[in-house]
Simulated scan of single mutants.
Amino acid sequence: MADSNGKFAVITGASTGIGFELASIAAENGYDILVVADEPLIEAAAADFRTHGGKVESVEADLSTTEGVDSLLAATNGRRIDLLCANAGRGLGRDFLGQDVADWRKVVDTNITGTLYLLQHVLKDMVARDDGKVLVTGSIAGFIPGSFQAVYNGTKAFVDSFTDAIRDEIKESKGVQLTTLMPGPVETEFFDRADMMDTSVGASKSKSDPADVARDGWDALMDGKASVVSGWKNKLQVALAHVTPAAVLSGMHRNMAEPGTADE
C-alpha cells in the first residue's frame, strides 16, 4: 500500500493502455489521483487504482469538448494539481477522403483542442507558483507523414511541436517540468477503435507493452527530461525520419496503415 505524499495527479485517457499504466504508477507512488476517460470503463479502472491505497476519483468526460475539460477541472474541487498526464487521444485510420467530417474533427478536437485547453489552464497555475509536472503523450507518428492515418499523424506532429515550443516559453519557471512522451505502436485498443485491425501495423504482434511505455514516460518526467522516445526501434525510426524524404516516409507508412495489408 502506497503512503500518501499529499500530492494530487490528474491522468486523462486512463481507462486503458498507457493512461491506465500511468495512473497505476502515480497511485503506487502515493499520489491522490483523478482519472478521466470518455467511457464508463473508467469506473472499473478507478477500482483497480484504489487497491494501491490512495484516494481515487474518476470522471467520465469527452475531452474533445471544452465542456468536457471543464467538467474535469470542476472535479478537482479547486485542489492544486501537482502532476498532469495529458494522455487522452484518438486515432482514425483509412483514407482521408472517405472519412466523415465528424470523425476526423473528433480526432483533432481530442488530440489538439482539448489537450491545449487543459494544458493552458493547468500550466498557468503551475507557472504562477513555479512548481508542477506535466507529461504529454505525443507520438513518433508526428515525425512521419501518415498515409491512411493522415489526420492522427498530423495532430501528433502538432503536439510534438507545440510542447517543444511551450517548454521554451516557460523555461524561466525552473520548478515546472514539461515532458513529451513519444511512443510508437502500442498494444492497446487504439487500433481497434481507429478501425485499423486489417492493417499491417494493427495486426502486428511486435507492438510495445503499454506498461513499458508508461514507465519510460514517468521516468523521463521525474528525471527532468524534455522528451523521450519509448523503445530502441522507435528511436531508430525517428532518427531515420529526420534524413528521409517525405515521399519515402509516406510510402513506408502506407505499407503499415493501408487497409487490407494485415497479411502482407
Results as ranks from 00 to 15, higher is better:
233 K>D: 03
120 Q>W: 13
11 I>E: 05
185 P>A: 15
215 R>L: 14
58 S>M: 00
169 E>V: 12
221 L>I: 10
35 V>E: 10
77 N>D: 15
180 T>S: 09
132 G>S: 00
44 A>W: 06
225 K>M: 01
133 K>Q: 14
25 I>S: 09
185 P>V: 14
153 N>H: 14
1 M>T: 11
217 G>M: 15
90 R>T: 03
167 R>A: 08
169 E>G: 09
76 T>L: 09
152 Y>M: 10
130 D>E: 03
246 A>E: 13
159 V>D: 04
229 V>N: 08
198 D>V: 07
2 A>N: 10
74 A>I: 08
176 V>D: 11
40 P>L: 05
205 K>H: 12
110 T>M: 05
58 S>E: 02
209 D>T: 01
67 E>R: 05
41 L>V: 08
253 H>C: 10
61 A>K: 06
50 R>T: 15
220 A>F: 03
23 A>R: 06
220 A>P: 05
221 L>R: 06
114 G>Q: 11
185 P>Y: 05
105 R>Q: 12
226 A>Y: 07
57 E>M: 04
176 V>S: 12
64 S>A: 09
174 K>G: 02
79 R>F: 05
257 A>Q: 11
250 S>T: 14
42 I>K: 03
170 I>A: 05
205 K>A: 07
100 D>T: 04
129 R>Y: 05
174 K>Y: 00
69 V>M: 08
254 R>I: 07
65 T>Q: 06
125 D>F: 03
11 I>A: 05
56 V>W: 05
54 G>D: 01
130 D>M: 01
6 G>M: 04
113 T>S: 14
200 S>A: 15
55 K>A: 13
141 A>Y: 00
255 N>T: 07
220 A>Q: 06
211 A>K: 14
144 I>G: 00
112 I>Q: 09
31 Y>T: 08
113 T>K: 13
224 G>Q: 05
106 K>H: 09
221 L>Y: 02
46 A>W: 01
115 T>S: 11
78 G>M: 09
49 F>N: 08
20 F>W: 05
28 E>S: 12
193 R>A: 12
168 D>T: 12
214 A>T: 08
169 E>D: 15
189 E>T: 14
247 A>R: 14
209 D>Y: 11
238 V>T: 08
70 D>R: 01
44 A>P: 01
36 V>N: 10
12 T>Q: 06
207 K>R: 13
212 D>T: 11
144 I>N: 01
100 D>Y: 04
141 A>M: 05
